[in-house]
Design a binder for these strands. Structure first.
Lengths: 227, 227
DNA sequence: GTCCGTTTGTGAATGCGTTCACGTGCGAAC
DNA sequence: GTTCGCACGTGAACGCATTCACAAACGGAC
């Protein structure tokens, strides 16, 4: 059962489990059942058990999982036992926010370098790190042995920044710019688009409104059903 | 074929198509094939065709899709023909960034109200909107007829803010706080966790490193295969 | 009006992820 | 040492999403 590849969907939930487990460890919870973890993570217990079974056989039947041990195993699997230096490109509103985000440091990530194309921003110190010009990108990547880059530039600049990053040896990119990026197959790319999330909400919101309208029109029929 | 429910996965891609189409419309592209749109959106053409087929039969065989008309149809389906007032709770680093994010306005969302629990932040004006105390939340929701709320508070405050929002009548919530929220079934909830994305990248990054190590160890075997 | 190249729309096949349901094994109690 | 109840681990069933592959249909050329 070891050495199965871990499904993408599971990888996406491991950080959620980890967060819940760390909270449990901070209170005085030594052991947790799949049911308990499921509730804390907002999923169902079968999913928890199947997800964790990909990591190995870490539970004890009749008891549950040892919280501290499971934290360790998930950290190890996610590669959070080492510290990852991160470079952020584009220090606008969002870049500022990310550079100062405490959640990164708590989870093994360190904002090691900041770059921006705008001379007015260069030189500013954010979260204890000085913003450097875009041309320093490759040098910074080598100097700090950076494997992960974050793009917070405007959409128009995003592809060029991604190219610079991959050329400099960055192997994983997190893209916040609203643009489709092309990178070599060896580079991992994930994207977060803030406005897309809102648009998805708007879709379901509108649908709910439409449903209400239909229901309103059918009020008489509904009443006839006496419910 | 009309009135099929639109799959969730498709809803998630419609904003991407929309963005690509708007860019095309700004240049002088009147018509686009599924192949062309697929490239611009970073997916394959079969997916584009199937996705668009859920909206209706808007393409022309042998020609493709009319860009302007398709933009209109996707906007209509996503509910972007109307303007959505949005409330943001928690005006820290990230809240600031979102309040000033231009991408929202461009896509039919208007930051109508800001609230924060910290008296030091209350009164500040961000993006032309004054930050109000948390107790004004319900009043602001009614005043501006707000259906969509965004949570950027620390994790500890997130559930209480979500409760206030739902009580006030907010029907969709976008949660940036690293916490699992519970809301009534009638309320839509989506979440974005910035550090989770990085953790997923770290997982694949570590796996790549491990693979490299294995490959290195198997160098002789690989050479024997003469590839 | 007919033919031809192109591109859509969509059933069918495939693959992935979730859920179910139950055998298995462990700890605790006595 | 034996019994009992609990919770894990997992094969099987199910459902959703993606991909394939092709018939249908449109525009343009002549």
């Amino acid at each position: 059962m070891r050495e199965r590849p871990i499904p993408e969907a599971t990888v996406g939930r491991l950080p959620v489990y980890l967060r819940a487990l760390v909270e449990m460890a901070e209170s005085t919870t030594a052991t947790v059942s799949s049911e308990g973890l499921a509730e804390a993570a907002g999923v169902n217990s079968a999913k928890v058990r199947k997800d964790l079974s990909y990591l190995g056989t870490y539970g004890t039947r009749g008891v549950g999982y040892d919280v501290a041990y499971l934290i360790h195993q998930i950290r190890r699997e996610l590669g959070l036992t080492q510290h990852w230096p991160v470079l952020i490109a584009g220090i606008g509103n969002l870049g500022h926010a990310l550079a100062g985000y405490r959640g990164f440091g708590e989870r093994g990530f360190r904002v090691a370098a900041l770059v921006d194309a705008d001379p007015k921003v260069v030189g500013e110190v954010v979260g204890g790190v000085e913003v450097r010009p875009m041309d320093d990108l490759a040098g910074l990547v080598h100097e700090h042995e950076i494997a992960i880059g974050v793009i917070c530039t405007p959409a128009t600049a995003a592809q060029e920044v991604a190219d610079r990053m991959t050329e400099a040896g960055v192997r994983s990119i997190l893209n916040f710019a609203p643009a489709v990026l092309t990178v070599p197959a060896t580079v991992s790319l994930r994207k977060v688009d803030l406005s897309i999330e809102l648009q998805i909400l708007a879709f379901y919101e509108q649908r709910k409104a439409a449903l209400q309208a239909v229901r309103g029109g059918q009020a008489v029929a509904d009443l006839a059903e006496a419910r």
